[in-house]
Design a protein around this nucleic acid. Sequence first.
RNA 1: GCUCGAGUGGUGGAAUUGGUAGACACGUUGGACUUAAAAUCCAAUGACCAUUGCGGUCGUGCGGGUUCAAGUCCCGCCUCGAGUACCA
Length: 938
Amino acid sequence: MAYPFRSIEKKWQSFWAKNHTFSAAFPSNKPKYYVLDMFPYPSGAGLHVGHPLGYIASDVVSRYKRHKGFNVLHPQGYDSFGLPAEQYAIQTGQHPAQTTDTNIKRYREQLDQLGFSFDWDREFRTSEPDYYRWTQWIFSQLFAAWYDNTSDRAKPISTLIDHLDKWGTDQLDAHCDEDTPLLTATEWKALTSDEQQTYLLHYRMTYLAESEVNWCPQLGTVLANDEVVNGVSERGGFAVERKKMTQWIMRISCYAERLLDGLNTIDWPEPLKEMQRNWIGRSVGATVRFSVFQHDAEIEVFTTRPDTLYGVTFMTLAPEHPLVQNITTDDQRVAVQDYVSQSAKRTERDRMADVKNITGVFTGSYAIHPLSGAKVPIWIGDYVLAGYGTGAVMAVPCGDQRDYEFATHFSIPITNIFADVEIENAAHVEKGETRIANSDFLNGLTVAEATQAAVEHLEKIDRGTAKIQYRLRDAVFSRQRYWGEPIPVYFKNGIPHLISEHCLPLQLPAVEKYLPTETGSPPLGNAIDWAWDETNETVVTIDKINEKTIFPIELNTMPGWAGSSWYFNRYVDAKNNKAFADRDKLEYWGKVDLYVGGSEHATGHLLYSRFWQKVLFDLGHVPVNEFAQKLVNQGMILGESAFIFRKSGTQTYVSAGLINGIDVEPIHVDVTYVDANNVVAHHELKNWRPEFADAKFDLEDGKLIAKREVEKMSKSKYNVVNPDDICDQYGADTLRMYELFLGPIEQAKPWNTAGISGVYGFLNKFWRLFHENEQFSISDEPPSSGMLKSLHTTIEKVTHDIDQFSLNTAVSAFMICVNELTAAKCNHRAILKPLTVLLAPFAPHICEELWEKLGHTSSLSNEPYPIADPMHLKETQITYPISFNGKMRFTLDLDAEATKDEIEQAALADERTAQYLEGKTIRKMIVIPSKIVNIVCG
RNA sequence: GCUCGAGUGGUGGAAUUGGUAGACACGUUGGACUUAAAAUCCAAUGACCAUUGCGGUCGUGCGGGUUCAAGUCCCGCCUCGAGUACCA
């Protein structure tokens, strides 16, 4: 008989909900522990078995930490703004809020049935006004802040205004736009108020700028980079062009260095840190200015190899470089214009994908080498990106492979500036011990020495300067979408003004259509009530707009990452309507102690969150500047898709073993119709889909065999395993433990339902330990030493494994223990009681039930976790110095409890061992029951 | 191309971080209990040799090396996975 998991799980889930068992206390004198999952986007498809893995792992840790005496915060909510709900709204007219609500209800049901110890009192969704009010508030904080390089932190914009009033831009070292004009205090004060506001946009942490977007005229919308494939839209395959639009941009680049440094202070997976480092892309080098021959112009380049300056034989500009038009000679004008318009048609992605074709065109002009004075030709090539560095490079074909190929292709001369290095076939890229030659004052220096000497010289003659360049770009923050946070800004004389804090939230207006307007404005352009009455500080109808007091409101909304970039702070005080969170609570809960989620957010959510946290920290709103101390990436659980094979052009399906040579196409088939031996229930296929009604089957041994392949779980691949089904068949405790048992958390692994019987069997065995002939039966006799050993070994192993986050091996430890206790017919209270607490984080329902049966009246969730008593530990590993030599492995007959002396005696009693031991000094001896494993000589 | 990470039975995966390789589980085979099945329990299960005996040999992708001792450390390859990509 299986244990009655269905009734047990329902009973305890409602018990926990009714008693708010997992609600985190504040204030509390217990130490705190904050465990966070990346909150889900509630999609219409619901959860599959892959989704909960991270939640299960974090739930085990949460419950464990509660037993260990911590005040645990383990909240959950929903990242509920997003594209799918908006798409659905466009197609059906249903308001995204409604879709979102339905989906969330479904998610909640599914989450509830897994028995998570979430503190649901703190639940929120990013799309509710009580939440996004504070997202808007943070936007305001960014708008009203600037970055002071002198003190290396963000500051309120008022401090910048003070500075400008007193000194103008003198003594000002701010992170601002490249083209920000310098002003004296007098000039600043002479500006009109509007001019001052425009000027301040150069400094604000979020600012308006023209930026290129992927615009799809047919879809009437802007697409993200990954929605564009091969120059056409992923959906529909329509042409996509690059269009300049005025957008809100976040000045994340000023945090490049601190985002990099901060990585050294947090315990995140190394690969993920590496991804962030690459994304930030710090390179150390120098800028160099070349003047253009017979033109009043200069080309500035960035290079990481100033040591190779004398190897420059040409220069290359990006096609979009502003100087291109000025310096092109009449002879070359047609060719250049052709080339520029050709590359303008290609998306950036296209250009990146097409790296093999070397293209370029000569401008007809020459630059003057800043050191040698030589004339070097200026080319245009689309291998140079307008968006990185200065959009121009000095080309050193002997030291850079791309320059080498470009030079070879266009027969541009190559100067070798490396001593004793062959550059017949390829550029010399290695730095190492290479010495520079043919380079005037740099001759004979190593790369490192020459780099330094060249930069010093450039600075002396004022042709360049040392510089650190980052790949990290400022983040575009505007989205031409409906289902996102409105940006709390209105425009007065075309100048953005914040809507006052006390007027937030600025609620999403109702619209009739969720598509952009005919004039190409974002969907909010369809809203009627979308103007700002400045006097009364309220939203009014747009037809009232006038020049004086009623103004248009921003039509763009915020991107998906806005709401998720600070949500961990909100859980601390989720119901607060006076502030985004109370300071005392922020102080108490501090950093997230354990954050669990997928690595796909490495350069998105996880970078933006760190950025916002640092801004909030600088402005004094949060007490810590990194939000999560430890992060664990859970790997994806994959599906095992099944394919059957259709003879091309027919309705005949061929068993996998009979294909050889036949022309077939693989067809996905729902995995529920395929058993563990890959046999397809082919008679039932027509119940699945009508097209199988007149299918014929070529069988082998009367069976249709399918082929398996491991893929991402997805509806379209018919390989989704639903947790509801598993819960129904085996129970939530089994599902929880099995997901952990599958393998290490971080690793991607396929779901295989076949193995679940092992875990299911384990829980039944555990249940039976407490029962005899279906009756609860427990003994109060003192347990045997063998049982105690089993228990305490397990306690030690499990505790150690949870601390190491090695949950799969912890599950194994339980299995070993229960097997041993079953063999010993153990039903002793002194063993089973602590074991129940020990297992509770993993299988909470069954443990609560047994806990109650053991006669306890309250939930076991606050019961102290058992501690291993070394006296009862099974394997005594004794390490101590004695003496020895020669070959080192022996088998001795020893009792498990053998003392040091007994071991030594036994070792000496053994003839071979005694022989080896004679006259030698042994440093270390490692003993496991019945065997000496190793003896180390001095 | 660059940067990480990984290669262990039929399968998922263990291995105290240099110390009994293959824990635990699935699967397979045999047995017990059953009229039978399910469920449960017991045994075997890396390969090869010896199985009238305790046993022996090989074995962690390949080739070297360090060490009394290597899945683990070092050098050189091969394969797979992830991220990233004309970043100057």
